[in-house]
Design a binder for these strands. Structure first.
Lengths: 111, 111
DNA sequence: CATTTATTCAAGTATAGTGAATAAATCACC
DNA sequence: GGTGATTTATTCACTATACTTGAATAAATG
């Protein structure tokens, strides 16, 4: 019955990319950041799907960027994490770190 | 078409509990370890389901315990992580740590 | 056969991955 | 100044995989 709205693996990664990107967090750079730091291919569609779920859960908010930049292309939709979202990220991080802390098999993954 | 067999969030946690438990890794203590370190309720059925997926992926192996212990109850099924499983855990850990490394919002989650 | 300890099953919901379609802006050209 | 090509970005429809839950089953002992 618990409706806990936990973070999935990919959702957590998206949240972390979002935090790092700050004011420049929208679809494309989020995707690039994930590829760069994880070394895995990231389908952009997955990113948007995760962002939508996260917004539904109240972990991020979004707003459209300015309507007429001096380049071609559609307007960007900027995302930012909410206080609740940040709390949830910390919570998930804490759980993981508790689980792997002190395991000699997992050295080098430090902080 | 990519069949990458990545670790889900819960699967990762189960793997970590498995590593920590060593020779005593079977359903019940795995579940307890998870509850203890994450602070979240864990349905034992979820643990078994994850273990089965992990075994399918070649990340863990299992074998039945001795048939006649001096207590009631069915025989235990012991699990252990494979070399490939350990590699995958390290890989996932590395990706996460890369993503949160250096973010001031996430201090205190150290190693 | 009652009790204990443990695993398995079935069926539902949630999360993730993919490729193609659509949207909204600028630019070049006449 | 209207039209279509180009650019940048988001959305959609579907499929696949992961997770959850509660109840059922299994295998041992007293």
């Amino acid at each position: 019955m618990t409706k806990r709205d936990q973070l999935g693996n990919f959702e957590l990664m998206v949240m972390l990319a979002l935090i790092r990107l700050g004011d420049n967090a929208y679809g494309v750079p989020i995707s690039e950041e994930l590829e760069k730091r994880t070394g895995r291919d990231v389908a952009i569609g997955s990113v948007y799907a995760a962002l939508e779920r996260l917004e539904d859960k109240g972990f991020v908010t979004s707003e459209l960027g300015e309507a007429t930049p001096e380049r071609g292309g559609r307007a960007k939709r900027y995302f930012r994490v909410t206080a609740r979202g940040l709390r949830e990220v910390r919570e998930t991080q804490r759980a993981l770190v508790n689980l792997w802390h002190g395991l000699p098999e997992l050295e080098g993954g430090k902080a």
